Simulated assay, not measured.
Amino acid sequence: MKFSILIANYNNGKYFKDCYNSIISQNYDDWEAIIVDDNSTDDSVSVIKDLIKNDLRFSFFKMDQNKGCGAAKRKCAELATGEILAFLDPDDAITPDALQVTVDEYLKHKNIIATYSKIMFCDKDLHPKYSDEKIKQVYNYSKFFNCPIQINHFFSFKKEVYDKTEGINPKLSSAVDQDLYLKLLDHGNPKFIPTNLYLYRRHPSGISQDKSKNKSKDNFAKVILDTMKRRKISEINGKKIPDSFTDSKEIFSLLDYQNSIPYRIQKNLTLFIQQLFNL
């Protein structure tokens, strides 16, 4: 089962060596790494090319102009030839057993379309600090929007399922992963791996840690609205879905019911039954 590791890079040359070392240290051998550089302005291209030279498992592609995270990640997926795909940010790393553990889940559970694991948050030098214990197995149904976020890295998915979707939205500059997750979940269920497989580096220049929080919030809200429309949902809990996006608060307010105790009890009970009968 060939595994494609997808890396969309922009100005992360100084961090890439840790990412590279984590890939070549994998105890699973059938993999390729697709690297798409989004026309970086730092020394990324020279750093990456120097590290991967003469290793045919790595493929490198440079965008002719800076087009943003969505476009770069979409290009990664287009170039991938593996059966299983997973994104790895160039400033992060994966554990040596990440690919093997992930592949084992697909072999064990034939019907799943994706997997995701626990995540270890690290400092700027990639030293582990704490694990995100809030990530659990999700109850996937038509009104699941991963809000609050439960599905996270290390997220992998079947290429054959990705090809059934519209693909990654090239216009998005943030909430790209959330858009991908929800599109894939239209076609089946994911499997949670209760192990830390992903090392997430916290540093001031990280793409997901930038200062444009409002834009990121708006993009996530737009992704949720698009998902509602794609799934032909006209109302949620008695509230009508807006025809177009005007304000992120309007979208997120539609999901307030998820915080209620009755909803949580029903969700957990349904999830327990699903897991009990391996549905």
Rank of each mutant, 00 (worst) to 15 (best):
K14M: 02
S244T: 15
I168P: 00
L182H: 06
S208P: 01
G188D: 01
P170Q: 10
H153D: 13
D37E: 08
L180Q: 03
F192G: 10
H153L: 08
M63E: 14
I193F: 08
F252Y: 15
F60V: 03
V36P: 00
D177I: 09
L199E: 11
K217E: 08
K136V: 12
L180K: 08
M63T: 08
I119W: 05
I224S: 13
K267I: 09
N237P: 00
S59P: 00
F245R: 00
T195H: 05
N169F: 05
N278F: 10
S117V: 01
S40Q: 05
F60R: 04
S205G: 05
G68M: 14
S205I: 14
K183P: 00
S59Y: 05
P148W: 11
L185Q: 09
H109P: 01
L88C: 06
R202C: 10
H109M: 08
L197G: 13
S117L: 14
I84E: 02
I236H: 06
K215S: 12
Y116N: 13
D89W: 04
T227A: 14
I224M: 13
C76H: 13
D29T: 11
I241D: 00
K171L: 15
S208L: 14
D38E: 12
F58L: 10
V176C: 12
P262L: 08
A8K: 04
K239M: 14
E32M: 03
N237F: 09
I251D: 02
F87T: 07
Q275Y: 00
I151C: 03
D50G: 05
C147Y: 15
